[in-house]
Computed example of a mutant assay.
Amino acid sequence: MKIYLDPGHGGSDPGATGNGLSEKNVTLAIALKINDILLQEYSNTETRLSRTTDKTVSLQERTDDANSWGADLFVSIHINAFDGTAYGYEDYIYSGLSDESATALYQRIIHEEVIKQNGLRDRGMKKANFHVLRETVMHAILTENGFIDHPDDAAKMKSTVWIEQTARGHANGIAKCLGLEKSSATLYKVTMDGGQIGAYQEKDDVLKVISSNWETFQTATIEKR
């Protein structure tokens, strides 16, 4: 299964700011940890991130990349802000979808799993006409993981434990949505240009992913574990 992780903002776009934090840094930390969990704990799982460093990526670039890659699920990670009084977690799917759609079911699953882990007030499941939800051709969800301008939520964001818990909630939800299987056999971990892109049981799958990305990377390593 192909999972596209989209840490919001980045580079010249810091996103929301408050309490000494920038949204772009918190979203990247959560996304990288989700990626680690998925690749280390589940077999036959591929991931791709819209960014792995603090760089500027347009909304169009994010959705074009996910669409051309053929992702099965798009998860965009964000942090909220309002006026310093609002707090808690909420998530969104595209406003044009019905409550009976498969994407809405995915939203309910991910929402429940994230709330179990993150210790934030539950602000509910919502819909919006956001670009990354409207222009993706696969199931897509956008999560808003607390309010950066609220002191209690921001204090959690500064904790590596909270980052881990929030990522764990996302990963658990993604795994349930896509029916991912826990790794039990020997895996071959594939790293390209310093970033892990997958872990596979079959050598043919390793060769296939390297071949499909042949023109886009400078270095690749295979680690048996």
Rank of each mutant, 00 (worst) to 15 (best):
N118I: 00
M125K: 15
S212L: 11
T53L: 10
I174T: 09
A86F: 01
A128D: 07
K176S: 12
A104P: 00
T53Y: 07
T219E: 14
M125C: 09
L59I: 08
I79Q: 13
A104W: 05
N213L: 06
G10L: 12
Y89K: 01
A104F: 02
Q117N: 09
V26C: 02
G198N: 03
G173A: 08
A66D: 09
M157L: 03
L97W: 07
E215Q: 14
K203P: 04
G195N: 11
A140Q: 05
G179D: 13
I79V: 15
L187R: 13
N129K: 05
A155T: 09
L39P: 04
P7D: 12
T191S: 14
T45Q: 08
K126S: 04
R108V: 00
S22D: 14
G198D: 04
M157G: 06
M125W: 00
K176E: 15
Y4S: 09
E223H: 10
K203R: 12
V209D: 13
K55N: 13
T85Q: 12
S76K: 08
S68M: 04
K127H: 04
G10A: 12
L38M: 07
T166N: 13
R225A: 12
L49P: 07
H139E: 11
G198H: 03
A81R: 04
G10E: 10
D54K: 10
D193K: 05
T143C: 11
H139V: 04
T221H: 02
A154S: 11
I109M: 06
I174S: 08
S76L: 09
A128M: 00
K158T: 11
N19Q: 07
L133W: 03
L28Q: 09
I34G: 06
K126A: 06
M192C: 10
A104V: 01
S58K: 06
I163R: 00
D91A: 00
R123V: 04
K158G: 13
D205S: 15
I79W: 01
L120I: 03
G96I: 00
H139F: 08
L5V: 08
V26G: 01
S12W: 01
T191H: 06
L32Y: 02
N213Q: 14
A29C: 04
Y188G: 11
Q196R: 12
T143K: 04
L142E: 09
P7T: 08
E61W: 03
I174V: 15
Y94N: 12
R108T: 03
W69R: 07
L59K: 10
G84S: 11
T136P: 03
K2C: 01
D13A: 12
R48F: 07
